[in-house]
Amino acid sequence: MQNKMIGYVMILAMLLFGGLSTVQAADGAKATNPEAAKVEKMIADADKARKKAASVEGEWRDVGKMLKKAKAALAKGDYKTAKKLAAKAKSQGEMGYKQAVAQKDLKMPSYLKY
């Protein structure tokens, strides 16, 4: 039941963040240097979210890779890609954290009969 809920929340979050990142990416196309600072901040925030997930053993597989790629894109001045990746990394960091915290107390599955 609770797991299903988490699932729905995740799908919602994915849709939301996916949508957001396209909007931001469009803005990023006409970016200049202040834009670089903004992207840098996004990447830093995403890395914070990643670390927070890791602190509860909830980090997802690709978040670190996304951030690496985001940094590389930023360095090349490709803000659009960098923003998109940072946004995705941040949302996955947050979802990984939520997923772990929602299961803080172990519930044994009902198919195991004691």
Partner: peptide
């Protein structure tokens, strides 16, 4: 706890696959 905890983007625990 580790064994029964769902992880990752696919939201599976070890038990989801190897028991359930």
């Amino acid at each position: 706890k580790f064994y029964y905890t769902r992880r990752g983007q696919l939201n599976f625990s070890c038990a989801n696959c190897h028991l359930q």
